[in-house]
Simulated scan of single mutants.
Amino acid sequence: MTKHVVFIHGLWIHSAAWKPWQDLFEQKGYTTVAPGWPGDLDTVEATRANPDGLNDQGIAEICHHYADIIEGFDEKPIVVGHSFGGLIAQELLANDLVAAAVAIDPAPIKGVKVLPFSQLKSGFPVLGNPANKSRTVSLNVKQFKYAFGNVLSDEESNALHAAWTIPGPGRPLFEDAAANFVRNSPAEVDTHTAVRGPLLLTSGTEDHTVPKVVTVEVSKLYADNTASVTEYHEYEGKGHSLTLDAGWREVADDVLAWLAAKGF
C-alpha cells in the first residue's frame, strides 16, 4: 500500500502550515509533499507580497494542478485536505486519482442544501463584493478570528493569522456558493457511483466556516454508495483552525490511526 501523502491547504492558508504534519507523518514512515495552489509562491511572505498569480484561480484549475502533480507519482498517493483542500481531495478520490482521502472540515460539495449564518458570515469578506470573483482577498485579524479562531484565545488566533495567512482567490467561494444552481459545477463530486478508495470526513463542532451540519449533510450524500467506504468523525469543541492550532496533534494522530486501520 502506498505510503505517499499529499497535503492540500484551504483558502487563506499557506501550504507551509502543513510542516508539523509532514514531520509527524515522515516519522511514521510516509513520504510527504504539501504543494501550494496554482499561483502560490514558496513562502507566506512572498505570496503576500505578490498574490496576483492566484487571481481567477478556480476549483477546476486547482483540481487540475494537483492532478498533474499526482501524475508524477509511481503509485496513487493518499491525500489529506483541509477546508477547500478537503473538497479538492474528494474530487481527486472520486476520479480514482488517489488511493484514499481525508477531508478535514471540507468546503461543501454540490448537493449540500444547508447554509448556516456563520458560513455566510465567514465568506462575506469575499462574497460581499462581486468584483472579488476574479481577484484575491485577505482576511484581517478580526475576520480570521471569526472564521478560523473562534474557539481560540485572541493571542493564539492572532499568532496563527500572522504566521500562515495569505490572500485567497475569490473564485472558488463564488463557484461553491452557486454550485447547486450551475450545471456541471466544478464543486460537483460523484458521491453515488464512484468506486474508489476510502474517505474520511471530519468536522469540528464549533466550526464557523464549515459548520458541522454542512459536513454531516456531505456524509449523507455518500450514504447510497455501498461500493466504497465513507466515514465521518467529529471533534467536540474544535473550530476551523483544527489543523493549525495547539490541538493539531490530536487530529493528525486520528488521521494516522484511520489510515493504519485501512491498511495504509
Rank of each mutant, 00 (worst) to 15 (best):
E71D: 12
K262Y: 01
K28Y: 11
S241A: 15
H233T: 08
L41R: 15
M1C: 11
A162T: 02
G29S: 03
R171E: 01
V255D: 04
Y30W: 09
P167K: 08
L201N: 09
Y66K: 11
I69G: 05
T230W: 01
A17W: 00
C63R: 14
E75K: 03
N158T: 10
A179G: 04
L242Q: 07
D224Y: 10
K238C: 12
V213K: 04
G123Y: 01
P51R: 04
I104S: 06
L199W: 08
D23C: 11
I88L: 09
D23E: 14
P211R: 09
T193M: 04
I13C: 08
H64C: 13
I166Y: 07
E217Q: 12
T165F: 11
G128P: 01
P20V: 03
F148T: 08
L115R: 13
S219F: 14
D68Y: 04
S219A: 14
T205C: 10
S138E: 13
D224K: 12
S228C: 06
K110G: 09
A252C: 09
L199C: 03
V214T: 12
I104E: 03
F148R: 02
F73P: 02
Q22E: 14
S153P: 12
I109H: 06
A187P: 05
Y66W: 02
P77Q: 11
D176V: 15
F7L: 08
L139P: 07
L41N: 13
W37N: 11
S153Q: 00
E45N: 06
F144R: 03
N150C: 09
W258L: 01
P211D: 07
P167Q: 00
D207M: 00
A16M: 05
V189M: 06
E206H: 12
A99E: 14
G86E: 12
L127D: 05
G111Y: 05
R48Y: 07
S118D: 14
W37Q: 13
L11M: 12
A162K: 10
T226W: 03
S241H: 04
L242C: 00
A99N: 05
I8W: 06
E188D: 15
T230K: 04
S219H: 13
D253G: 12
A131D: 12
A261Q: 05
A163Y: 06
I78P: 00
H4I: 10
Y235P: 02
L127F: 01
K28H: 14
D42N: 15
A227P: 03
G247W: 03
